[in-house]
Design a protein around this nucleic acid. Structure first.
Lengths: 339, 339
DNA sequence: GGGTTAAATGAAGGCGCTTGCAAGATAAAG
DNA sequence: CTTTATCTTGCAAGCGCCTTCATTTAACCC
C-alpha cells in the first residue's frame, strides 16, 4: 500500500541502507545520494514507517499521557499544552483515560504493548500506585501535579501545595479576614490534603484558631455547591478558600442562592485561575499555578529520562501567584502588604 | 528488556507459533498449550509487542484523534467519551492538536508515519481539506461534527445544523419572541453558517423578517461578549440565539453589565448544553446534541471502515433537543406547542 | 481398529526498517 | 603518484511478531 524503503531504494538506484540513512539524523550520506533519495521518495510519496523503525531502534516516540479528570476545564489547557509541547519535539501523546480505573495492571499492560518511550501522569487524583507501577516496569515516568516529597518515588513536577495553602492564608489575612474556612476537593487528593495543611498551619501561626475544613466529593461545580451548604451552616464564616475554581463557583452560587452577596457578605478565594474565573458573573480572586512552565518542564524531563533512565527521582516545584479580582473584600489599609 | 515471544516459547516448551496463536483471537490452539503459554508468560511478565505485531499484520490499533479547539469545554466531554469508547474496543487514540495549523501536509505525514488504522476528525472548524487529504492517502476517516451534505467527501457523523437552526427558531417563536437575532461563532465555521441559515429561513417561513446576523470570532466567552456589544446597538431585539453556550454566557454578561435582566429584558438560547449552562448564575435554555451517541457511532464507523475501507461516504445525523431552563421568558400560553 | 476428517503444531519466510561490518570511493598528505 | 585517513556505501543479520504450509496428533464414526 504505502511505498516501502525498498521501492524508494530501487527508484533512486541506491541500497535500502542509503535511504534509511538519508532519513536518520547524523548518518553518513553524501549530499548526492540524499538528493536522489529525496527525489525518489517525493515521487513515490514515501513516508518512513515509524512502526518498523521502532522495532529496530526500540524507540517509539510515543508518550503515554495519563489523565483521569475530564470534568475540569484546566485539563483542556493541559491537553492543549501537552500535545503542542510533545509535537514540537517529534513525540506523540497516547491518551489514556483512567476515569474510574483503580487497578494499574490493565493500563500498564497497554502501555507496554505499545512500548511507549515514557509516561506522563497528569493528575493529582490518581493513587500513587499507578506511577510506581509504571516505573517498576522500567518505563520513564514523570508525575505532573504530583505531590512534593523529600524522597519521591518518581519524578514529580508541579507546585508545593503546602506553600499554596500558606499563600492563601496570607492573602486572606491581608484582606483582614479572621474567621475563614477551607473547602477542598476530595479528601483523598494529595493536593487537597496539602493545601488544607498549609492553610491551617499558617493561620495558626498568625494566632488564629484552626479553620474548619470541608471537602467536596470532586473538583466540580455541583460538589462545591453541595459542600458549601455545610459551610454555610457554620456561623460567622467571613471567607472561604476553595481548592478549585469550579468548587468555588459552585460555592458562590450556593451562597448567592441564600441571598448572600460576594464579597460584601462572604469572600471567596479560588484555585487554578481557569477561564471562567474572570467571567463577570464571578470575578474570582484565585491562585494560579504556572501550568505552561510545569508542562514544558515535564516534557523536558520525560525526554531526558528516555536518554538517562536512571536519573534519581526529584521534585521540580513552581511558585504560584495570586490573581486578585473581586471576590475578596477590599484590602483593609491597616492589614499590611501582601507577600 | 521486555521478554520476547521466543523466551516464552522456550520456557513453555512450545514453538513461537504456539505462543503467537495463544494470543490471537480465534487461532487454533489446544487448551493445554494455551495453559502452558499463559503460565510461562505470567512467570516472565510477557506482554506481546503491538509494534512488532502491527508490522506483521499491518494493523496498529491506533486511531488519530484530531482536534483544534482546546478552549471549549464540550471537548472535555468529547475527549473523555472518545478515549473511553476507543479503549473499550482495544483501540488507542493518538491525539493530534491542529490548533493554528493550516496545512494538512505535516499532520498527514505524521499520521502515516504511525500507520494509524483510522482518523477521527473531531471539530467543525477545520478546513475540509484536512479530512480529504487523509482520505486521499487511503486512511479511513470519519468527520465528527462535520457538515451534512448529500454527497459527502468523507463519512460524517453529527447533527443537521440547518435543522437545529430551525429548531431554535421554533423554540423562540413558541416563546412568543418576534424580534430576534443570531449570534454565531466564526463565520467560516460550517456549523455557524448552517445554523444561521436554518434559523433565518424558519423565521421567514413564519412570516417574520430575516433576523440580524452577528458573529463572534471564536466559540469562546470573550468573543461572545464582544460580539454582543454589537447586538445591543440594535434596537428592539427581544431574544438572541447563540451558536454556543460559551458565546451565550459572554453575551449574557455583556447584557447584564448594561443593567439588562435575563429573561425579563432579553432572552437567550444557547447551544451545546455544557455543564456551565446549568449553573445558577445562568440557567441557560439551550440546544443539546447527543454527543454520546454521536461519538459511539463515530467509533463504530471508523472500526467498520478499517474492515471495509470502501464503504461509500455517508452522513449519519442525530437529532438535537432543546433543554429549557430560564433564559427564555415564560412560554406564552397562546403561542402553541413546541415540536 | 481402520479410515476419514478436523484440529493442533512447528519450521520458515516475511513485515519495513536499522546498523555493524567490510569494502570501495574520495580526499588529504607526502 | 603513492600512502594514509576519512567518507560512503551495500550486504546481511536482526528487531518481535504473524502466517502459510506441510506434518503430526486428536477426534469421530462405523
Amino acid at each position: 500500500m504505502s511505498p516501502t524503503i525498498k521501492e524508494v531504494a530501487e527508484l533512486a538506484g541506491v541500497s535500502t541502507s542509503a535511504v534509511s540513512r538519508a532519513y536518520t539524523e547524523g548518518a553518513s550520506v553524501s549530499a548526492k545520494t540524499r538528493k536522489k533519495v529525496e527525489g525518489a521518495a517525493a515521487a513515490l510519496g514515501y513516508v518512513p514507517s515509524l512502526i518498523a523503525r521502532s522495532l529496530a531502534t526500540n524507540r517509539t516516540k510515543l508518550i503515554g499521557l495519563i489523565a483521569n479528570n475530564f470534568q475540569n476545564p484546566v485539563f483542556l489547557d493541559v491537553f492543549d499544552l501537552y500535545t503542542q509541547a510533545l509535537q514540537a519535539r517529534g513525540l506523540r501523546p497516547l491518551l489514556v483515560n483512567l476515569t474510574n480505573v483503580t487497578d494499574p495492571t490493565e493500563s500498564l499492560r497497554m502501555l507496554r504493548q505499545y512500548s511507549v518511550d515514557g509516561v506522563i501522569v497528569a493528575t493529582s487524583t490518581l493513587p500513587p500506585g499507578f506511577a510506581i507501577a509504571f516505573r517498576d516496569s522500567g518505563i520513564p515516568v514523570v508525575h505532573t501535579f504530583g505531590r512534593y516529597s523529600r524522597k519521591p518515588k518518581v519524578h514529580v513536577v508541579g507546585i508545593d501545595n503546602i506553600r499554596c495553602g500558606r499563600l492563601a492564608a496570607d492573602t486572606l489575612l491581608a484582606h483582614g479576614y479572621r474567621s475563614v474556612a477551607f473547602l477542598g476537593g476530595p479528601q483523598f487528593a494529595t493536593s487537597t490534603q496539602d493545601r488544607a495543611l498549609g492553610f491551617s498551619k499558617r493561620l495558626q501561626e498568625a494566632g488564629l484558631k484552626a479553620p474548619k475544613l470541608f471537602y467536596a466529593n470532586a473538583y466540580a461545580y455541583d460538589d462545591g455547591r453541595q459542600a458549601m451548604a455545610h459551610v454555610l451552616k457554620e456561623k460567622g464564616i467571613e471567607c472561604v478558600f476553595c481548592g478549585d475554581d469550579l468548587i468555588c463557583m459552585g460555592a458562590i452560587d450556593a451562597a448567592r442562592d441564600l441571598g448572600l452577596e460576594v464579597p460584601r457578605d462572604i469572600g471567596f478565594l479560588g484555585f487554578n485561575d481557569m477561564p471562567m474565573a474572570s467571567w463577570s458573573a464571578y470575578q474570582l480572586s484565585t491562585i494560579r499555578q504556572p501550568i505552561r512552565e510545569i508542562i514544558a518542564e515535564s516534557v523536558n524531563l520525560v525526554v531526558s529520562l528516555t536518554e538517562q533512565p536512571d536519573l534519581p527521582p526529584a521534585c521540580k516545584l513552581f511558585d504560584c501567584t495570586v490573581v486578585e479580582r473581586r471576590s475578596l473584600r477590599m484590602q483593609s489599609s491597616a492589614s499590611g502588604k501582601r507577600r
